[in-house]
Design a binder for these strands. Structure first.
Length: 642
DNA sequence: GATGTCC
DNA sequence: TCTTCTGGCTCAAGACATC
DNA sequence: TGAGCCTGAAGAC
């Protein structure tokens, strides 16, 4: 399941793309969850409650999310792609089933989960294919802020922010992976990263035997594509699998699921409905259910009150250094232990080779110090999200993540007029080395490859020679300003970091997506915001009125500021800094019942600005027909290397 | 915080 | 000689209530 | 079921 050893590889080679946070840090965020993985977790955690555990687990965990004002979106798997058949059959075999349990028809358990989630009032979406693919699509197109999954596939599918271990345990630490930072660290484009994932081993095709993560990364960094890698490995020691369908796997990862933009709404939970369903039908103890709901309500109120109070003192807190370097409880404990170790050394007369004391107690805090003046440094909890920029960026090819994050040094594929991507100059850095193979072998392989490539989809390798030639798409110079603006816009961490004033964006980081900042048009923004925020704005009763932190100006008929985060720590000027200018005034959008009409003013758009035929997806996608055939099936590919 | 229980 | 890969083994895997 | 650890085997330098 997932990508073999990818987590290890990231830990060792792209540490900066990982950050550790707490569940509180996701307050106010919309998070897509791959429901099948969540259900599996509960099923395996309590094996003797195989059936009920996913239901009760989902119930408890969802309420925990809602308590933190996290807005979950549950994504269910659709029909698995045919390329996954082998893996599913193998799993079924291991589990002692006669056939894969995962099918296009919904199991009773899935139906129960959907019913439960509807009663809780959170939206569910059925993916046309793999849930992971849709989750990734949702986050890269800005519909949600992050994907919570244990499956590393999400990154290969282009999910820009992946959260692992997002559960309700008090001391649990959420691991956040940032795809843009990962690509930057590995010096790969997304397409090259997908090839790397295929070499590591994924669910959709075999891998090259004997090629582990270290060599796979090195080879991809050197040769950029699987086709080139294959020409440069010892095929005696690393034989190419028979019927290797890597091209289909690549297409699965790169293709965007064909779905309409979902309209997400969160509603008040139906306590009586939940009691009827869980207690009367499923025989869960009523006391457990009612007790948890009561705790949920009081906890929600308490947290909101607390946030209001925090907001009041936020200006004071803002200047505290700890605000810039979040330390999770777990890491704090580790740091404390480390401090103790140094104390022991000092008891022994001090360790003259030890780091200065400031690096002990807060070592986790200061781990990112090196990035202080790097706009990509994102230690602040509220900074990686709201990738509204992807909207309206019609020039971004759909096969690449639209929410290019923060760094100009991310190797950006240049988009040619013909829809072909070529590596950026930075990706050319290690020039493809000539193989040391014997001439005969190489020429034979090249001949094979040539015949294959002439009849299959173009790859990066086929275009490498064009980098220095005429490219009809935007040039690197044209691309950079866009990146630059993204960088400024997303540099929320620097904006709260007094030490990087020089590198700060000229305009304050706007958390008001209606604010004109040239990153996306107001219409496109509003299209997105309707999904993200209006369920709350539209009906404040759903999530309480006095609880959300609104920037100044909210409720003012002449200005329309969206709720920022719930922490209330955004957009605070630093001492000595002039106050941020008030958000630009926007004509008031229809509120309340008038809002749906607003959404009809414009046909639904994909994240990249292409109009989608047909209406937006219903909140209950199981009622509406999701487009079938999520992935272009194409002709079956043969193994060009055999 | 450790342990037992959830059905 | 060092690095990398493979395969085998073990263990934890959820959330709440009570003490 | 996956992750982590350990081991021996094999390849790379």
């Amino acid at each position: 399941m997932g990508i073999t050893k990818l987590a290890d590889l990231i830990r060792s080679d792209a540490q900066d793309s990982i950050s550790y946070k707490e569940i509180e840090d996701y307050t106010g965020k919309v998070i897509a969850l791959d429901t099948s993985i969540v259900m599996n977790q509960f099923r395996t955690a309590v094996p003797n409650l195989k059936y009920l555990s996913p239901l009760t687990g989902l119930f408890f965990r969802t309420l925990t999310f809602l308590e933190h004002d996290i807005k979950p979106v549950f994504v269910f798997d659709g029909k698995p792609p045919k390329q996954k058949k082998a893996v599913l059959e193998k799993r079924a075999q291991n589990a002692g089933w006669t056939s894969p349990q995962r099918s296009s028809t919904m199991s009773q358990r899935t139906q129960d989960c959907i019913r439960l989630l509807e009663l809780i009032g959170v939206p569910c979406i059925k993916a046309p294919g793999d849930g992971e693919a849709l989750c990734a699509h949702l986050v890269k197109s800005g519909v949600v802020d992050a994907v919570a999954s244990e499956d590393m596939d999400t990154l290969a599918f282009g999910g820009t922010i992946l959260l692992r271990q997002l559960n309700a345990k008090r001391d649990s630490e959420v691991t956040e992976y940032s795809l843009p930072k990962l690509l930057e660290a590995l010096q790969l484009t997304h397409k090259e990263f997908v090839d790397l994932c295929i070499l590591l081993g994924c669910d959709y095709c075999d891998k090259i035997c004997g090629l582990g993560p270290r060599r796979a990364l090195k080879l991809i960094q050197e040769h950029r594509t699987i086709e080139e890698v294959v020409l440069n490995v010892n095929r005696k020691t690393h034989p190419i699998p028979l019927e290797w369908r890597y091209q289909e796997a690549r297409r699965l990862f790169l293709d965007t699921p064909q779905v309409d933009r979902p309209v997400l709404t969160w509603q008040e939970l139906d306590e009586e409905g939940l009691v009827r369903f869980l207690c009367h039908e499923k025989h869960v103890k009523e006391q457990r259910v009612r007790g948890r709901i009561e705790k949920f309500r009081s906890s929600l109120q308490d947290r909101r009150r607390q946030r209001e109070e925090d907001k009041k003192v936020g200006r004071v807190k803002q200047t505290r250094l700890e605000q810039f370097f979040r330390v999770t409880r777990k890491r704090q404990a580790q740091s404390a232990a480390q401090e103790k170790k140094f104390d022991l050394l000092s008891d022994l007369g001090g360790d003259i080779f030890a780091a200065p004391p400031s690096q002990t107690a807060g070592s986790s805090n200061f781990a990112n110090f090196a990035h202080f003046n790097r706009p990509t440094a994102q230690s602040n909890s509220n900074t990686d999200f709201a990738n509204f920029d992807s909207f309206g960026n019609s020039s971004v090819p759909s096969t690449h993540f639209g929410t290019t994050h923060p760094s100009q040094s991310i190797p950006q594929p240049l988009h040619t007029g013909g829809g072909v991507t070529v590596p950026s100059l930075s990706s050319m850095a290690p020039a493809p080395t000539q193989s040391s193979k014997t001439g005969e072998d190489r020429y034979a392989a090249l001949a094979e490859l040539d015949s294959v490539l002439s009849s299959t989809a173009p790859t990066g390798s086929t275009q490498q020679g064009n980098v220095f030639g005429a490219v009809s798409g935007p040039t690197a110079a044209q691309t950079q300003p866009g990146l630059s603006s993204i960088q400024q816009g997303f540099a929320a961490a620097p904006s709260t970091n007094p030490f990087v004033a020089a590198g700060m964006a000229p305009e304050p980081m706007s958390t008001n997506p209606f604010q004109t900042n040239s990153r996306a048009s107001a219409t496109e923004m509003s299209d997105c915001l309707r999904v993200l925020w209006f369920p709350f704005v539209d009906n404040p009763a759903l999530f309480g009125t006095g609880s959300m932190s609104m920037p100044a100006g909210f409720g003012n008929p002449t200005s329309y500021c969206m709720p920022t985060s719930f922490s209330g720590t955004f957009q605070q000027p630093f001492p000595g800094q002039s106050p941020f200018p008030p958000p630009a005034a926007y004509p008031q959008q229809p509120n309340g019942t008038g809002f749906p009409a607003y959404g009809q003013a414009k046909p639904p758009m994909t994240s990249y600005g292409q109009a989608i035929p047909g209406p937006g997806m219903s909140n209950n996608p199981f009622m509406g027909g999701a487009p079938s055939g999520p992935y272009p099936t194409g002709g079956s590919s043969t193994n060009p290397f055999l």
